[in-house]
């Protein structure tokens, strides 16, 4: 340890440091929360009031915007589509990535290591670059403009991150457990199913969370692959509703609120696991 300042100076320095921290973090909290606050309070006001007093909570809240969203648009279709494709993709990524990771950790050949690296390369390359060929391929498969056409793309997109997180996690599972199960006569699949999967729950949650944010919020692939009203995801539908509501800002803000609040609540409820899951995955990169 180098030379240290006197204790008194250090203590006052700490107090000043704390005050500064509160100031900085407080200002940032305002910058984060104010736009969300404005979005929500203004979705209950008629357009004229939004412009006259954007900051206040309306004394006579109206629900026209929300009514418009449900009556005039196909909001529920979009919502259903998004839930459907997101859940399906996440489940798919979890299953495929878990199976592959299990083998990549225990299969002791050069090829397995090469395949691991091959998967990890995908972390560095955004899938959008492949878009042109994906359009052509999906067209060939008859999956263009079909919600299900997004599934293989999201599976492929989620795979590198899923495999990275899960292989890292499987490596931390004590070998003795696996070996004990093997001695008990369990086959490799049984070991996977009965031993590895239950243990990997936290890592699986991380994979799920990562994909939830990425897939739920994805605009690019729906934008280039989906055209029909009945196949649109929430984000694509939201852009379309902006076009429909135009100057009706009440409805626009109601749309935004409805698209945001579910995931926001989910996040707030799960925020501890969410953040821990994310840091667990990110650090190991």
């Amino acid at each position: 340890m180098p030379r240290i300042r006197s204790a008194g100076a250090a203590a006052s320095g700490k107090r000043a440091g704390n005050a500064l921290s509160y100031l900085v973090l407080g200002v940032w909290a305002v910058i984060v929360l104010v736009p969300l606050y404005l979005m929500i309070v203004n979705s209950f006001k008629p357009t004229s009031e939004i412009f006259l007093s954007p900051f206040s909570v309306s004394k006579a809240p109206i629900f026209d915007g929300f009514r418009m969203v449900f009556e005039e648009g196909n909001f529920l279709v979009y919502l259903f589509n998004s839930v459907f494709i997101t859940v399906l993709s996440i489940v798919g990524v979890m299953i495929l990535a878990a199976l592959a990771s299990y083998a990549l950790v225990y299969w002791d050949v050069r090829l397995a290591r090469a395949i691991s690296v091959f998967f990890l390369l995908g972390l560095m390359i955004p899938m959008r670059i492949a878009s042109i060929n994906l359009i052509i391929m999906l067209k060939g498969l008859g999956l263009l403009d079909k919600l299900l056409g997004l599934l293989p793309i999201y599976l492929a997109m989620g795979m590198p991150m899923g495999i990275m997180i899960l292989t890292e996690y499987f490596r931390t599972i004590p070998r003795e457990l696996v070996q004990a199960a093997h001695i008990d006569g369990a086959g490799s699949f049984r070991i996977f199913w009965a031993v590895m999967l239950p243990l990997a729950r936290p890592a699986m949650a991380t994979v799920a969370i990562f994909n939830l944010v990425n897939i739920w919020n994805d605009l690019w692939f729906p934008l280039i692959l989906i055209r029909s009203e009945s196949q649109r995801t929430l984000m694509l539908g939201v852009t379309r509703l902006f076009g429909q509501f135009q100057t009706d800002w009440t409805s626009v803000l109601a749309t935004l609120t409805l698209a945001t609040v579910p995931i926001l609540i989910l996040y707030l409820v799960l925020s501890r696991q969410f953040i821990e899951g994310l840091t667990a995955g990110a650090v190991k990169e």
Binding site: I135, L144, D145
Partner: peptide
């Protein structure tokens, strides 16, 4: 009859892609 509109700035491109892809 189903009405299936696209945002104006995206329409021409969207339509082209739909037609090219047979959708």
């Amino acid at each position: 009859v189903k009405f299936d509109p696209t945002n104006p700035p995206d329409y021409n491109a969207t339509l082209r892609l739909q037609l090219e892809s047979g959708t």
